[in-house]
């Protein structure tokens, strides 16, 4: 591997890692509040990619209820991304109301909630297939507008080309990480989220409406999933309704690596997995997905508390 290739792979790794990070943040937000993994998150990721595809005014394929249909209008990519993510957030809200809250109010075991979310995931994936078929969808090239297809990070003699798409992915993800960090640490609602995350009973004694906050968390989580799905869809096409499942599993690896419920840890772990994956040599690329899980396995053996290893605070 020469230097330019290393640099190129590093930049690609950063880009994909940043998507893993925001996708995993969606998991981690819900987990930190409810101590339950939302298995529907991968399906929302997939939905988000389709939402944006639709909002771009692109036409659906030959199968499914929406065959050959397209919206009568076409949004520019940034707006389509935003609206697609908002719609994904609303799906997150619906998932909470249908699959989480009814169980919570009955005091059900978290394991049942997890199974419930898995059921939602299967239902959503099948709904997608029913509506738009199982074809591969690629975002129309006009998404990039007049932007060049690639940007050279090297010199004219030693070119290090990186696809513009990767740069967009990285930039969007970073903006989201910064905004989310501000939301959580700098706003009243973020402080309330932290309070519910640490001790929901105390939070409600302070006058925090925990149900509403949980709903908001699912909205945020769905929003993040929708953005991540769109960004991956932009980078590598939407690979059918099952597109989100492998990312869903990888997202799980990311949050365990980062420490369950740990927000900075999830970002760090996302980058780590993205970078390590991008350095898998070309002839072994089929094993790329194994990398995340090998890291996960090693982590569970040697550092079960996660990368940043915040010790669990014992309540007195």
């Amino acid at each position: 591997m020469n230097t330019t290739l290393i640099l190129q792979q590093f930049l690609n790794g950063l880009a994909i890692g940043s998507v893993y990070a925001i996708f995993a943040l969606g998991y981690t937000l819900v987990f930190s509040i409810l101590r339950v993994i939302n298995f529907a998150h991968g399906a929302i990721f997939t939905l988000g990619a389709y939402f944006t595809y639709m909002l771009l005014g692109a036409r659906f394929g030959f199968n499914g209820v929406f065959a050959n249909l397209a919206l009568p209008f076409s949004l520019p990519f940034p707006l389509a991304l935003l609206v697609g993510a908002l719609l994904s957030g609303l799906v997150g809200v619906v998932v909470e109301r249908l699959a989480f809250r009814p169980l919570r109010t009955r005091g059900a075991d978290p394991l049942l909630t997890l199974v419930s979310s898995l059921g939602v995931a299967v239902a959503l994936v099948n709904l997608i297939q029913y509506l738009v078929g199982a074809e591969i969808y690629t975002y129309p090239p006009r998404v990039l507008g007049s932007l060049p297809a690639a940007v050279n990070f090297g010199t004219s003699t030693l070119p290090v080309p990186v696809r513009t798409v990767q740069i967009i992915i990285f930039a969007v993800s970073m903006v989201i990480v910064v905004l989310l960090t501000y939301l959580i640490n700098g706003t009243k609602i973020g402080k309330a989220l932290q309070a519910v995350s640490e001790d929901a009973t105390t939070a409600s004694l302070l006058g925090i409406d925990t149900d509403r906050l949980i709903l908001f968390t699912f909205f945020l989580s769905g929003f993040l999933g929708g953005v991540a799905g769109t960004l991956v869809g932009l980078s590598v096409s939407i690979n059918g309704p099952y597109f989100g499942i492998s990312y869903g599993l990888k997202g799980l690896a990311v949050i365990v690596l980062g420490g369950l419920g740990d927000i900075p840890g999830a970002v760090l772990a996302g980058f780590l997995i993205g970078l390590v994956e991008s350095f898998v040599p070309a002839q072994y690329v089929a094993y790329k997905d194994a990398v995340a899980f090998a890291l996960l396995f090693a982590m569970l053996l040697f550092r079960p508390q996660g990368l940043l290893g915040r010790a669990v605070v014992q309540k007195v």
Partner: peptide
């Protein structure tokens, strides 16, 4: 029932939620 990972000030501010 402290919110242990928040500052004293944040605890007070949340009291005024």
């Amino acid at each position: 029932r402290m919110l242990t990972r928040l500052s004293v000030m944040d605890n007070l501010l949340l009291g005024a939620y």
